[in-house]
Amino acid sequence: MPASAGRPRRAGQPSAVRSTLVAVASTVVFFGVVAWVVVSSPGWPAVQASFFNGEVFASSAPSIVRAFWVNVQLFLIAEVLILALGLVIAVLRSLPGPVFFPVRLLTTAYVDGFRALPGVLVIYILGFGIPGLALPGVPVEPFLYAVVALTLVYSAYVSEVYRAGIESVHPSQEAAARSLGLTRFQALRHVILPQAVRRVIPPLLNDFIGLQKDTVLVSYIGVVEIFRQSYIQQAGNFNFTPYMVTALVFIVVTIPLARLTDVLIARDKRRQAAGGVR
C-alpha cells in the first residue's frame, strides 16, 4: 500500500529515503565520536595491549570455545528440566479450592524462596554443602549440582511466566471445555495450556537467554566451563583478551535468540490485531 494512501504526507515531513540517510549519518557520527574518545584516551595503548591482543586471542580461542560446550550441555539439560518443573509448579499453584491450600502454600514458598536467593548462593550451597555432608552414595560431581541449582532457581521464574499465561486464558474457555464433560485436568491439558504456552513463548525465550549467561556462575563450584577456562587463559598469559573471546561467544549465541524473541512478539501483536490467536 502506498504510504500516501493511509496518511497523507504533510509539508516538511521527511521522505523514507531521507529518514534512512539521517539515521545512518547519526549512527556513524555517534559511534565515530565514541570510538575516537576511547582510542584517543591516554590509557588506550595499555588497554589495547591487555584486552585486544591478537596473538592471545588466536591462542586462547580454541580452548575457550571448547569449554563453552560444557555451558551448552548445562543450559540445554537445565532448560528441559526447567520447562517441565516450572509447568508443574505453575499448575499446582493454580489449583483452586480449600483442599489444595497446602499445595499452593508449598509452591508459593518455593517460588518466593528461589526468586529471593541470588543464583550464585544456591549454586554455592548445593555445590559445596551437599557433597560436604559426605553421605554415602551422594554424588560429588559439581556439574550435577550446577544443573540442579540452575533448575531450582530458573524454574521458580519460569513457573511465574507459565502462571501469567494460564491466567491470560479467559475463564469462558474453561467453561466451554468443562461444559462438554471434560475433567478439570483434560480442560487444562487440551484447552488452557496449549493457549497459555503459546502466549508465553517470548518471555520463556527471554528466561532461556538469562539461563545461558548464568551458566558461568557454576565456575564457582569448580566446573571448568567457558568462564573458568578464560580465567585460566588470562592467568597463563597475563592478559585479559581471553575474556573478550568469551564475551564474543555469548554475543554470537544469544543475539540471534533475542532477535527471534522479538520476531515472535511482533507476530503475536499482529495476530492479536487480526483478532485471533492460533
Binding site: 467453561a175 461444559s179 493457549q195 492460533r278
Partner: peptide, 12 residues
C-alpha cells in the same frame, strides 16, 4: 449441551 453467547470456540 450448552451454547454460549460468545461462542467460546477453542481458538487453537
Amino acid at each position: 449441551g450448552i451454547v454460549f453467547q460468545a461462542f467460546n470456540l477453542f481458538p487453537h
